[in-house]
Amino acid sequence: MNFNLQDALATALLETLQMVAYSLIMSILFGGIIGLLLYVTTTKLFYKNAVFSEVSGIIVNILRSIPFIILLVLLMPITKAIVGTNIGPKAVVVPLTVTAIAFYARLSQAAFAEVDNGVLEAASACGAHPIMIIFSILLPEARVGLINGITVTTISLIGYSAMAGTVGGGGIGDLAVRYGYQQYETKIMLLCVVILVVIVQSIQLCGDYIARKANKRSGG
């Protein structure tokens, strides 16, 4: 073995963390906003607008149907324009974010749609402004669904980030493919897989814990 496994793992972990963290923050922010827009434009209590919700729904669906590896290549010019390069962890963040935004938009839309319509109607009947209803009723009531959505998105991002190797993005997944799989270092591959399993498992546990704490519905 002509490379230091520990160093390689540390670097790979850091790269994965960076890629996932950046794209996660962006996707929660923009995906959440798009999800909210998709929701409020389909609801009479807020700002029903069939044209807007149909068109944006189609765009989100298109983004979600393109396989990530294709999107990675497809978005190269845009990536270059935004981060100045086509390769490396930074470059992967752009397609990762685009995919995750579309993903989280749908998840958050579903979380908003699950909020009891009667509660929103009661708030509306109090004479509250729709913006106030969104911030002080809709968002808090949807928070368990939103948190669960973040957990699922984070885990999906870790999966997608493994394809970052294609554009020299690095990360744990890339390490597993290049050193483990392609160079027949089964041990390294297994080690990487175990690390990924542990990371994913911890994220799921954390997410579930936070969601449980945030849920006042069951009296917790």
């Binding site: 009891d116 009667g118 509660v119 109607e121 009661a122 708030a123 109090c126 004479g127 509250a128 402004h129 106030m132 002080s136 009723i137 808090p140 009531e141 928070r143 945030a214 006042k216 519905r217």
Partner: peptide, 20 residues
């Protein structure tokens, strides 16, 4: 079915229309 906000305390539920 009461239609109270499940994630607000009794006080916060009653306070909502006042804030509105």
């Amino acid at each position: 079915h009461f239609n109270l906000a499940a994630n607000k305390t009794v006080r916060k539920n009653i306070e909502f229309p006042l804030s509105a």
